[in-house]
Design a protein around this nucleic acid. Structure first.
Length: 478
RNA sequence: UCCUCAGUAGCUCAGUUGGUUAGAGCAUCUGACUGUUAAUCAGAGGGUCACUGGUUCAAGUCCAGUCUGAGGAGCCA
């Protein structure tokens, strides 16, 4: 029976009044052959356990090494030292699992994030990663809480999909056919009729199309699940496997969509501040220390906590694509030819353009709406001007696009016409088009990259450090 | 995929115009000390200089290729 133990978070919240308790956790450091910093992951803070001199035999003390797991019974008393309010004076110490000090890779010192990525199975045991993943949990929980409170239905859309029509990127093939000798048609092409599903299948790149089917019955649904892109992307903000949140709402237009997205983002940030203040403060300090090494002009103007409070207390800037282009063309940066890529109406904005708008011009999250139809997906609702669609992207400082969404084209003829123009096989998507045939309604939705949200809230610069076991090109360890 | 940079001890790094036995801090081990806060002090051990090939009397250092990692770009969330 292990359940009689007290979690360190619970213990540290109490006053030290000679309580007798049992704790379990992992050794962070063992100082002076006397003081054990014990952590059980319930909080970033360690419990200081005091092993009084002469009370325990040498053989046991030698086994108290960084990384070892311990069960300790003792009495909680006010600490004589300065760094903590309480000590657990040990009566008994049991080593549950040894950790060979010569082989355990984590040391009580600062490690590079790159190195920790190589030992991702152990990095949860560091201050930084335990904070990041507690915050990640809180954010995930807040996602469900937000939508649940609003009466959304959590819809589990399929991971394996037969449609490759979304056009959201390269897909991973799912098959049970043998690679060395697949069944073939007479013309030499692979015969997918013999494959597991009787057709070619892939891992999903988006649950949106299925999400729309749900919205046409429940009014409001959201998905929150793994999403896969087989792009050869090597950046600090792309993963081959990531988690995406995709709400879809019937009887919503573009403005409703923006309102919901903004409220949603603020809600989950607030939830993290309310529930993980210590972790966020730790991460803020980490970020500040890291930025001290940068030249002044590369440092953030705001600390992490300030940035989050700022986002909560200010409305996101809302501009149309056309206005965004005007701002860029009239910017000092453009006039001084600072942009590598030219700006004119119709272009797909480059990272440098988005960064300028968000980080230099507005200095806060920006929602850009009504993009040219030629650079956006087939399902977005066509505007009256004949040139633009009711799309909206939310751009966040330091991250770039964090949300991509739109009001959907609910008019069957318009949708079919657009699919034809963009060479989307309508026959394959008969089920999708059926929603426009039977009780079609104006509706809208968006996709939010969960890891990018976690990056924004934790201040972590690399997306590989906010997902437990990142999948990127040439990397699928663990 | 493209561009740039990097790969030297378990970790973080230094290593001069190519030249004797490749160094430091931390970690580890041994000992000392004992109310410490990444404890401290003394000593010791620890290297396929990413890999393959080449140039040279001589390569960690120069050249080519490969692999891996990082940053930026594209694709996007």
């Amino acid at each position: 029976m292990f359940n009689t133990r007290v979690k360190i978070k619970t213990l540290l919240a109490q006053e030290p009044q000679n309580l007798e308790v049992t704790v379990m956790g992992w050794v962070r450091t063992f100082r002076n052959n006397q003081f054990i910093a014990l952590n059980d992951g319930s909080t970033g803070n360690n419990l200081q356990v005091v092993a009084e001199l002469g009370k325990f035999d040498e053989e046991l003390l030698k086994r108290i090494t960084t990384g070892a797991s311990l069960k300790i019974k003792g009495t909680v008393v006010p600490s004589l030292g300065k760094g903590q309010k309480m000590d657990l004076v040990a009566q008994s110490i049991e080593v549950l699992g040894d950790s060979d000090a010569e082989k355990f890779p984590l040391q009580p010192k600062k490690h590079s994030l790159e190195f920790l990525r190589e030992i991702a199975h152990l990095r949860f045991r560091t201050n930084t990663f335990s904070a990041v993943f507690r915050v990640r949990h809180t954010l995930a929980f807040a996602v469900h809480k937000f939508f649940n409170e609003k009466g959304f239905v959590y819809l589990h859309t399929p991971i394996i999909t037969a449609s490759d029509a979304e056009g959201a990127g390269e897909m991973f093939r799912v098959t049970t056919l043998p690679f060395d000798n697949p069944p073939r048609n007479e013309d030499g092409s692979i015969n997918y009729k013999e494959d597991f599903f009787g057709r070619a299948t892939n891992l999903t790149v988006s649950g949106q199309l299925e999400g729309e089917l749900g919205a046409m019955a429940f009014s409001d649904i959201y998905t929150f699940g793994p999403t896969f892109r087989a792009e050869n992307s090597n950046t600090t903000r792309h993963l081959a496997e990531f988690w995406m949140i995709e709400p879809e709402m019937a009887f919503h237009d573009l403005e409703d969509n923006m309102n919901l997205a903004e409220e949603f983002i603020k809600y989950i940030i607030k939830h993290a501040i309310d529930n993980n203040k210590e972790d966020l403060e730790f991460l803020a300090q980490r970020l500040a220390d890291e930025e001290k090494q940068l030249p002044q002009d590369k440092r953030s103007e705001m600390g992490l906590m300030e940035k989050l409070e700022f986002v909560l207390n200010n409305n996101f800037e809302r501009i149309t694509y056309t206005e965004a282009i005007d701002i860029l063309i009239n910017s000092p940066a453009y006039k001084k030819k600072k942009f590598q890529y030219d700006v004119k109406w119709g272009i797909d904005m480059q990272s440098e353009h988005e960064r300028y708008l968000v980080e230099k011009h507005f200095k806060k999250p920006v929602i850009v709406t009504n993009y040219p139809k030629d650079i956006k997906a087939f399902y977005m609702r066509q505007n009256e001007d004949g040139k633009t669609v009711a799309a909206m992207d939310i751009l966040a400082p330091g991250i770039g696009e964090i949300v991509g969404g739109s009001q959907r084209e609910e008019r069957l003829e318009k949708l079919e016409e657009r699919m034809m123009q963009m060479h989307i096989p309508a026959a394959e998507l008969w089920w999708y088009l059926d929603t426009r045939r039977f009780g079609s309604v104006p509706h809208a939705g968006f996709g939010l990259g969960f890891e990018r949200m976690v990056q924004f809230v934790t201040g972590m610069g690399n997306i590989r450090d906010v997902i437990a076991f990142p999948r990127t090109p040439k990397s699928a360890e663990f």
